[in-house]
């Protein structure tokens, strides 16, 4: 039972943290920038794609 309550507490902290980050992102007006953030280079930019 104590473990469940502890888990509950940690989970709610994570939720609170997510909401705070959302609020910050909305204030910066980049909350719709998933496209841009997804462009973090994972591979060489010189890779030739499919024509």
């Amino acid at each position: 039972m104590d473990v469940v309550i502890l888990q509950l507490f940690v989970s709610l902290l994570l939720v609170a943290g997510s909401v705070v980050m959302l609020a910050y992102s909305v204030k910066q007006a980049d909350h719709e920038h998933a496209d841009r953030l997804s462009l973090m280079p994972m591979e060489s930019d010189d890779k030739k794609g499919t024509p």
Partner: peptide
């Protein structure tokens, strides 16, 4: 339109020695 457009313009600028950052939301 999408991430590809953002990447393309950034890449064109990079090849010329500049940096181009797009705010696609606005």
């Amino acid at each position: 339109h999408c991430a590809a457009c953002v990447w393309l313009l950034a890449e064109l600028a990079k090849r010329r020695g500049a940096a181009f950052t797009v705010n696609s939301a606005l």
